[in-house]
Design a protein around this nucleic acid. Structure first.
Lengths: 320, 320
DNA sequence: CTGAAAGCGCTTACAG
DNA sequence: CTGAAAGCGCTTACAG
């Protein structure tokens, strides 16, 4: 019995001949280990919780695909845990006794959540956290991507470039602002705080933010929205004001969600491979479950996507 | 022991006083039944599989929310099962031994899938199937909703109304065409097959379909797209042709996805409460798991959403 | 490297 | 209505 168990779980100390005989017999009998029995006897759940409170459906489904792929390939089950409030992080454990947790932003940087996990000594991995040190998971270099985007605007002659920020608590909010400022420095443009307004990664914050920016005495000729939904809101506000994009105003987003390619004009944006990032994050978690010292924070490549929403700065603005 | 088990599982034959004593003790000890042990001893998984092959992320996440809500409230776990090919329906059972399955379109009407489930005598419920008889689950009256939409176009003076259909295999594709034809009859308009083109519920099919329709000798003045993504594609094609919506062309979609309210112009569409429908569908499944004769097919209400993409028919078209 | 025993924490008959 | 026994199908020590 123990020998068969060893073969199933890929443990050492089984002679090759014995292993082969066991595997052959398993195939012949079409034997599948009973998950419930393994869990009960082994005192582990083989469950991975995906904790989320991110409202974006597109983002979440891409994450789910990646987590699912990684967990299945290692015989883990996925348990979805929408977190209504970070204080309710413990409600996870009512529905599951997971072997590990995958955190999505902004839960990745929520002190209450992280403390609860640490207290239980439960392994966890983070997708796109703000704080990348002492964490395992995956991320893209948001700052570099934002810098590339804004630098491209500057090269097209834009001198006043607005930024509508992401939602508080999201690491991406901070890193994308860092990249924005870096690009201004690199392009020799001044940093004007009035050109940076708050946002929430939502369509509505794009509308509000753009209205505020475009009402300035010296309005921007380009707006870098923290994500595509926000950028879509900017397009809406621009249309309301009778501005033509990109002739009168350049706009860029971030994420390359489906809407980015479908909206008019199509958005220049940054593509991040969310499914792949989620898969890698989950793989790190699984390594850590096996060995508390294993797992790393992996950097994943992003890609700039050039579409219709960006053009040269209006001629009159250049003369200023 | 048996008595406690009865209390936990809400079974009869426990004196009220005894029940209270058990419940009090459970709370005092913060006792939670071990799911693995229940599964092993009870020979059931307490798992519900959500099977899907629908590419729309928005739709799927709404479905997940509803299925999750219903299954949690009845102590079931949700297992996500993306079905690459209907022939691979059996791959579900590699990862789970579910007590029941929730089917989403177009799997709801896939004969291979349904046959596999019947063969295993596994309870299942359907969300928006084409065939509503002999099924349990939830649906909206797609035909009535489509009829309302198209009738509204006719009342605005449109006499040539195009339709871009949904994807093959989806019940909604058929029912929405039924409603379209019904509206034409009700409005006394002829049915012209050249005004109905194929589609796949995708942005790209909207672009292609609209190009085809607008290239007709007598092009339509209004297009009813089978869903919002398709309608977004229609807007794109219209813009390419220099047509102004709704002045030159009226467009309506279906589903009221986020893009419907964000696109320019915002789409007139039908809102269906997908999360609620998924919740009800799962509840039907849970009833059927308990009793093979229980469960029903519930009709859920839809709502017409009037926005900017629909207007009166162009004056010259009325003179025809 | 392999086998026999004990036990994971419940549910299911079954006896009272 | 309640209790004691057996068993669900594995894994974990432990002996050889």
């Amino acid at each position: 019995m123990k020998t068969v168990s060893r073969v199933i779980n890929g443990e050492p100390s089984v002679r090759e001949g014995t292993r082969t005989r066991v595997v052959t017999a398993m195939e012949k009998l079409n034997y599948r280990p009973d998950p419930s029995a393994r869990r009960l006897a082994g005192q582990r759940s083989y469950e991975i919780v995906l904790a989320y409170n991110n409202p974006s459906r597109n983002y979440l489904m891409d994450v789910v695909s990646g987590v699912l792929a990684a967990s299945r390939s290692h015989h883990y089950n996925l348990v979805l845990s929408p977190i209504t409030s970070p204080r309710d992080i413990d409600e996870i454990f009512v529905h599951a006794h997971p072997d590990g947790v995958v955190l999505t932003p902004p839960l990745t940087d929520d002190p209450v959540v992280v403390a609860a996990l640490n207290r239980r000594r439960l392994p966890y991995a983070c997708l796109s956290p703000h704080d990348r040190k002492a964490r395992i998971g995956a991320y893209i270099d948001d700052a570099a991507a934002a810098r590339d985007l804004v630098l491209a605007l500057a090269r097209l002659g834009h001198r006043r470039i607005g930024h509508i920020r992401g939602a508080r608590g999201h690491g991406a909010r901070e890193w994308r602002l860092v990249g924005y400022k870096q690009a201004l420095r690199d392009a020799g443009l001044p940093y004007d705080p009035s050109l940076v307004v708050d946002g929430e990664f939502l369509f509505e914050s794009g509308v509000q933010g753009a209205r505020k920016l475009l009402a300035l005495k010296q309005p921007p000729t380009a707006i870098f929205a923290a994500n595509d939904d926000t950028a879509a809101g900017v397009l809406r506000a621009a249309a309301e004001l009778g501005l033509c994009v990109p002739r009168d105003l350049s706009v860029c987003g971030f994420d390359d969600t489906p809407v980015a390619g479908q909206i008019l004009p199509a958005l220049t944006t940054v593509q991040q491979p969310i499914t792949e990032m989620a898969r890698i994050t989950t793989l790190q978690l699984i390594e850590r479950i096996r060995d508390p010292k294993a797992g790393a924070m992996e950097r994943i490549d992003y890609r700039l996507i050039q579409r219709e929403s960006v053009g040269p700065a209006p001629a009159n603005s250049r003369r200023r």
